Amino acid sequence: MEPLLTFDEDLLTGTVVDRPNRFVVRVRFDDAPERAFLGDPGALEGTVEPGREILCSPADDPDRATDYDAIAVDVEGVYVSVRTALANDLFERALSRDAIPAFDGYATRKREPSLPDHGRTDFLLDSPDEETAYVEVKSCTHVEDGVAKFPDRQTERGRRHLRSLDALREDGYETHVVFVVQRPDVERFRPYREVDPEFGDLLARVRDAGVGVHAVTTAFEPPHYRLRNDDLPVELG
């Protein structure tokens, strides 16, 4: 399958030393550890762990506090992408190719549109029947025994997004949330109720009310990102 995206910058292989804060991981390449920006502020338990192989890209910006960007971590032979913002690009590229059955014939009208009441969501789409559809995209990397789980930290922001989608649905708009699992070693998706039971309950409630809930998986095979599963089973319980 043709790649969704290709990473065109240099990649360096290092080893995770530690994670001093949510947005920084220290990486050893040859000598002293270097600081790399971590674009995924999640807990990342089992992923960003000392001793794991990590791919980083040099950042040529003297004003930055970090000299590298963390790109992906090798977890038992599988590269796990640690770039949360990339989920939107992967979804949009798959959408443009009609590669996700649930969105066949849809097209992007606008990214990060303002909502009628307040705030923003990730995408405003035109549906095949010329209606409006709002889509929120969530990046997911936590996997246990083949089950992708979101969120891996408490997320009031995520709960607020679900409530906004449900309010839009009540106003007559088509709404969806899409979980982009940025690793391929997955068989199904579930909300991570042990971490955020309210999010899990809310996700089930809005789906029952008519909000579309979808999940897909991607694979990073350096330097390419590919769509692996275009319709990952979603189990809400």
Rank of each mutant, 00 (worst) to 15 (best):
G158P: 02
D122A: 04
E112W: 14
S114E: 13
V147E: 12
V135F: 00
E156W: 09
P116Y: 04
E131H: 11
A133K: 08
D122L: 04
R120N: 13
V147P: 07
T155C: 05
R157A: 14
T121F: 00
V135Y: 00
D122C: 05
F123H: 02
E130K: 08
T121M: 02
T141A: 10
Y134M: 05
T121I: 02
K149D: 01
T141W: 06
D117K: 15
L124Q: 10
F150S: 05
E156D: 15
L115K: 06
D152K: 05
T121S: 09
E156A: 14
G146Q: 08
F123N: 00
A148T: 10
P128I: 11
Q154N: 09
C140L: 07
S127F: 03
S139Q: 08
A148N: 09
A133Q: 12
G158Q: 03
R153T: 15
R160E: 15
E112I: 11
L124Y: 07
V135H: 00
R153G: 05
S127Y: 03
G146L: 10
V137T: 05
E131A: 14
L115T: 07
T155I: 05
P113L: 08
S139P: 01
H161A: 11
G146H: 08
R153N: 14
R160N: 12
E136R: 01
V147L: 11
T132G: 01
E136Y: 04
Q154W: 10
D122G: 04
S127N: 03
R159L: 00
S139L: 01
G119H: 03
T121P: 04
D145F: 15
T141M: 08
D117N: 13
D126F: 00
P113T: 05
V143H: 08
P128K: 06
E144D: 13
V143P: 08
D126A: 13
H118L: 13
L125Q: 02
D145V: 15
P151Q: 11
H142E: 09
S114V: 12
L125S: 03
D122R: 02
P151E: 08
